Amino acid sequence: MSIQHFRVALIPFFAAFCLPVFAHPETLVKVKDAEDQLGARVGYIELDLNSGKILESFRPEERFPMMSTFKVLLCGAVLSRVDAGQEQLGRRIHYSQNDLVEYSPVTEKHLTDGMTVRELCSAAITMSDNTAANLLLTTIGGPKELTAFLHNMGDHVTRLDRWEPELNEAIPNDERDTTMPAAMATTLRKLLTGELLTLASRQQLIDWMEADKVAGPLLRSALPAGWFIADKSGAGERGSRGIIAALGPDGKPSRIVVIYTTGSQATMDERNRQIAEIGASLIKHW
């Protein structure tokens, strides 16, 4: 067993022997301040990774656009098919120029040779490549099948209805392509620590998230040296922004954090800054 596999296998073990965790309302004060600064709703939840206990939450059962955070769930569904012998990570998928959609920095470079399922998941999570996500959605049967996968996990809230990039439209009061912070946090925890996926697939999923290259201005910008984070960000229309993450000190994750916002007129930089400040408060009061 590799060191990384050992780390993920012992996530519940280490967490069980940690000192009790206590909620700190100071972080919620910052979440509410972010709402004021952005002029928009902000949803927040913080779960203990081992027990699933909610440590703090704000608007945990209000719907927010998922945006690209759905790509972690998508690759979880792909990995479940791999575990069941219905898919192979090494299978190569070929596609054409007509398949390319807006923001496809990886797939646009491989029109000639195609990409493997493993490479597509890596591109979808680490670079948020939209064509990679659409190609992977095709392998599982489309958005409705991802929703069905989530329902089978016990998540009857999260739903995907459309493809990239239309799913980022974020129309107010439109339930399409949305989740709730509580539902997303619980589902992410199941994917990373539950028995739904094999140990190898859980490790692969967290490795992809740990290698995320496009979430630097968010929670990662607030992390002290030595902290662990595996995350996936999302951005959408109407001032929408979000991030889902597993993080913790001492090089291992111990909490799940989900943050979503929508309806702001603020710039992307300002949305990023507010999420980073929430992260800084979380870490300060850990």
Rank of each mutant, 00 (worst) to 15 (best):
A276D: 10
F149E: 14
L74P: 10
I93H: 15
E119Q: 14
F228P: 08
I275Q: 15
R176I: 05
L160S: 11
M66S: 09
G90A: 12
V31G: 03
D207K: 03
Y103E: 01
A40F: 01
D174W: 04
V42F: 00
L146F: 00
S201T: 11
L223C: 10
M115P: 01
L111E: 00
K71S: 06
N272C: 11
G114D: 04
G141Y: 00
D207L: 06
G234L: 08
H285G: 06
L219V: 13
R176Y: 05
G263R: 05
P165N: 01
E166D: 12
I244E: 10
F58Q: 12
L79Y: 06
I140W: 14
T158K: 10
I125S: 15
A148P: 11
I229T: 01
D155I: 06
I278N: 09
A183C: 10
V214Y: 05
S57E: 15
R81Q: 00
L120T: 06
A132D: 15
G43L: 04
G85M: 02
P249I: 07
G142H: 04
D99V: 03
L219H: 12
G236N: 15
T131F: 10
N168R: 12
T267E: 10
P143T: 10
R59S: 09
I278H: 14
S80I: 13
G234I: 13
W208L: 07
I244P: 10
D33L: 05
L136K: 15
K53M: 02
A40C: 01
G234M: 11
L28R: 07
I256M: 12
A77F: 08
K144Q: 10
R273W: 07
P60F: 12
D231H: 11
R63W: 01
P143V: 10
S221Q: 11
V29E: 01
M153R: 10
A40H: 05
I259T: 07
F70D: 04
S80T: 06
N173V: 06
E62D: 12
V106T: 06
L150G: 06
T186G: 09
L135F: 10
F70G: 05
A123Q: 00
R63M: 02
D250H: 04
A133I: 00
A84C: 07
R92I: 00
A225P: 04
R238Q: 15
S221L: 03
G236H: 10
W286A: 06
T267K: 04
L89G: 02
P172S: 04
T262F: 13
G216S: 10
L73E: 07
G216D: 08
I278R: 15
R189H: 13
G85H: 02
Q37E: 03
I54L: 04
L282I: 05
A215L: 03
Q274P: 03
T126E: 01
A246M: 13
R159T: 08
L188K: 02
L197Q: 02
A215S: 14
P181T: 12
